[in-house]
């Protein structure tokens, strides 16, 4: 289980997270929505332990990520995969080498075992044909799939997705959504997805939380969000220009 208790974070004079509390159950797909720059990615980065909050706690299975030593942090991160917005592939390594990287660097298994695991993940994400290509030779959608293959290569229990469908065409977005659902059903992973894409959010979410100005405005099932009476959430999910949200 992932728990965030009263997280506050300020970068310079800007308050990015203001008393955020969330509880994400094991095996749940939890979607975080909100405008750009309201602190959605910062929540993911707090869970991944990229920074310590100014106040509050981040707990992964009861262990403090916010006070973790680098060794504990590394152990906690072994349970996690992170799909970055751009894919964050190492540009001088091929698709296969990128996916194999965590296994090679941590010397997990023999070369044959690593090849077998990598082939399995590439097949799951339909990337077998692109295995020997370089990141510069593949499309944005493929880069995200390679990033996802790399994120799941060590069979993490938690996957953090940072805008997995941004910049993709609707067909590719649906493909990525299908993969997220597949991860949940086949690998039983806990997923936290940051997105602006409401169609995608409704498709994949067990619960949705809307963030506004660094705070959680509403948290509920997709149905509850669809039928909300909160004017801020309504304006956002309907994509209206006029309303209480300052643009």
């Amino acid at each position: 289980m992932i728990e965030l208790h009263n997280i506050c974070k300020r970068f310079g004079s800007k308050i990015v997270l203001d008393d955020v509390s969330l509880k994400i159950e094991d095996g749940e797909t939890f979607v975080i929505i909100g405008q750009s720059g309201v602190g959605k990615t910062t929540i993911l980065r707090a869970i991944a332990g990229f920074f310590n909050p100014d106040s509050g706690e981040v707990l992964i299975d009861g262990i403090h990520m916010d006070r973790a030593t680098s060794r504990v942090k590394a152990n906690l991160r072994e349970k996690m995969g992170f799909l970055f917005q751009s894919g964050a592939l190492i540009n001088w390594l091929s698709v296969r080498e990128n996916v194999a990287l965590p296994l090679v660097e941590h010397r997990i298994g023999t070369k044959e075992e690593i090849d077998r695991i990598v082939d399995e993940k590439l097949e799951l994400l339909q990337l077998t044909d692109a295995a020997e290509k370089m990141p510069s030779d593949i499309s944005g959608g493929m880069k995200k799939r390679v990033g996802l293959a790399r994120a799941i290569v060590r069979n993490p229990r938690i996957i953090l997705y940072d805008e997995p469908t941004s910049g993709l065409d609707p067909v590719m977005s649906a493909k990525i959504d299908e993969l997220i659902i597949k991860m949940k059903n086949e690998l039983k992973v806990t997923s936290i997805v940051v997105t602006h894409d409401m169609e995608s959010a409704y498709r994949i979410a067990d619960r949705i939380a809307m963030i506004y100005k660094g705070s959680v405005l509403q948290c509920g099932t997709p149905e509850e969000i669809k039928n909300t009476t909160n004017p801020f959430v309504r304006q956002f999910i309907e994509g209206r220009l006029h309303g209480p949200i300052e643009v």
């Binding site: 991160r77 996690m80 970055f84 941590h106």
Partner: peptide
Amino acid sequence: MKVSEEIDALEMMSI
């Protein structure tokens, strides 16, 4: 690599 989150990705993989 830093601005395109590749270094964060390395840290996430405990590399």
